[in-house]
Design a protein around this nucleic acid. Structure first.
Length: 464
RNA sequence: GGCCCCGUCGUCUAGCGGUUAGGAUCCAUGGUUUUCAUCCAUGUUACAGGAGUUCAAUUCUCCUCGGGGUCACCA
């Protein structure tokens, strides 16, 4: 069975890049009928926080990406790691190194001065004498010093590393006994049954080290898929400095999970010319072999387009529900269908949609200068009065078409063009140009409010 | 600097030896619309460069250039 994983270290929020690899892992597991598991890599006690873990979990919940089974916390697995450290020590595949941090720094500086590669020199590899006093030893693994390490990567192909170029006897347990990343990753991936690792290609150069661990422990090596990075507009790895990279910011800004996921799945992956993918389609069509080799630049233009697409195609009842997050309560508004039908084609985000609703529902308190100049000229007020009178005498006004036919009556009786009533009325209703059809606006706010707004606009603008 | 990866429109990408190099987004123009938006139509823009291999290279090989990643008792 295919088991994939997402293994964040809880040092901050869930960012866009992490979410994409998580999504890929999730989709592939579901595609194969396998499992997608979550592991929190919290071995660095100094940098981890519980809030970060919760933030990550919350983001997954918002997006509907559910992990299978229990969440694994590395911080709770010390005994397991200790067991394997002991095993390697007993088998002579790892050893204690009593070199102090100062000595290590000195060694590095010498190597740099000689333009050599900085690496541990193996001085305690075969040490059998009396250890120095007062040094808590680290545990180092005996890595191969020569030969070739091959990484079979499902995205990049077979990559060859020379041991002498990249390896040294790296630390697997710190002075305080805490195990290090490259060691625990290999152990956990094996123990958790993960056989397909999809992760960022910044991990590519870690992979040979992890292979050393796999081999020392006799574990089967999983399949690797190293996904290219997402870059910022200046071509560098996306980081927290690049503005909106917190996934939850997108919720705040009014993006829907469907749009964000659809956007991310197309970053570095494609299925022919298809742009729109439902979750179901993503699962059916995703295959890591179709992942691109090259990095992509993060640019949200397309996200806006996708988000407006999804908003247009979301049922009004659901939109009304989503808008409550922006203090817009339409759930029981009797004209919400008409309102949202008119408005959802004009919003790129839910937040914009909220603003648009606000603008319709609220009586305008000010009038745009330019709009007044354009609309309230000639006999504009006479036209408004005429319409107002018709409106007061009418009853049974429900649909936009009811309001529209009254407008047409005025137009034909006064022998004017439609613009002569349209523009002034629009400005009277909204205080500015632009916006949805005026008959829709009137139907939504109703007869009394319409009359009020017309009256207000005449009073406010005839005094000036 | 060592090692590794990458290089098609501004951006996301299709392409897997022979194509007028396709789609999407963005931008521009036109149409629809009382306005704005939507929608529709049209248009501008790309194979980093150089050698090879081949009847034929965007596609295969090598080199150059450019970009990125990584080199911890971080993950």
């Amino acid at each position: 069975m295919t088991v994939t994983r997402f293994a964040p270290s809880p040092t901050g929020y869930l960012h866009i890049g992490g979410l994409r690899t998580a999504l890929f892992s999730y989709l592939w597991a579901k595609n194969r009928g396998g499992k997608f598991v979550l592991r929190i890599e919290d071995t660095d006690k100094a940098r981890n926080s519980e809030e970060a873990t919760q933030a990550i979990l919350k983001a997954f919940e918002w997006l509907g990406l559910e992990a299978d089974g229990e969440i694994t916390y590395q911080s709770q697995r010390d005994e397991i790691y200790a067991k394997y450290i002991k095993q390697l020590l007993d088998e002579g595949k790892a050893y204690k190194c009593y070199m102090s941090k100062e000595e290590l720094t000195e060694l590095r500086e010498t190597q740099m001065a000689n333009k050599q590669r900085t690496m541990y020199d193996g001085r305690y590899r075969d040490f059998s004498g009396t250890p120095p006093e007062g040094v808590a030893p680290v545990i180092r693994i005996k890595a191969p010093l020569t030969g070739e390490i091959l990484v079979q990567d499902g995205v990049k192909g077979t990559i060859s590393f020379q041991a002498e170029d990249i390896l040294d006897d790296f630390v697997i347990a710190r002075g305080d006994g805490a195990p290090t990343y490259n060691f625990v990753v290999a152990i956990d991936d094996y123990l958790m049954g993960i056989n397909e690792v999809i992760r960022g290609d910044d991990h590519l150069s870690n992979t040979p080290k992890q292979i050393v661990v796999y081999e020392a422990l006799g574990f089967k090596i999983p399949a690797f898929y190293h996904v290219p990075m997402i870059h910022n507009s200046s071509g560098k790895k996306l980081s927290k400095r690049d503005g909106a990279t917190d996934v939850m910011d997108y919720k705040e800004m009014g993006y829907t999970p469907a749009a964000l996921l659809n956007f991310l799945v197309r970053l570095g992956w494609s299925h022919g010319d298809q742009e729109i993918f439902s979750m179901q389609e993503m699962i059916e069509l995703f295959n890591p072999k179709d992942i691109n080799k090259s990095a992509s630049i993060y640019n949200t233009e397309k996200l806006d387009w996708l988000n407006s697409h999804y908003i247009k195609n979301t049922p009004n009842a659901e939109l009304a529900e989503l808008l409550t997050a922006y203090d817009i309560v339409l759930t029981s508004h009797d004209k919400k269908e008409i309102l949202l039908d008119a408005l959802k084609e004009r919003a790129k985000t839910l937040k914009e949609l909220a603003t648009l609703v606000e603008e319709i529902v609220t009586t305008p308190s000010s009038f745009d200068e330019k709009a007044i100049k354009k609309a309230f000229k000639g006999d504009a007020f006479d036209v408004l009065e005429a319409y107002s009178t018709k409106l007061s005498n009418a009853d049974e006004l429900h649909l936009p078409s009811d309001y529209h036919s009254l407008m047409e009556e005025v137009v034909s009786e006064m022998e004017i063009g439609f613009g002569k009533i349209g523009m002034p009325l629009r400005v009277a209703l909204l205080g500015k140009m632009g916006g949805p059809n005026i008959d829709v606006i009137m139907a939504v706010i109703g007869k009394e409010e319409t009359l009020l707004r017309i009256k207000n606009s005449i009073r406010a603008n005839s005094l000036a």
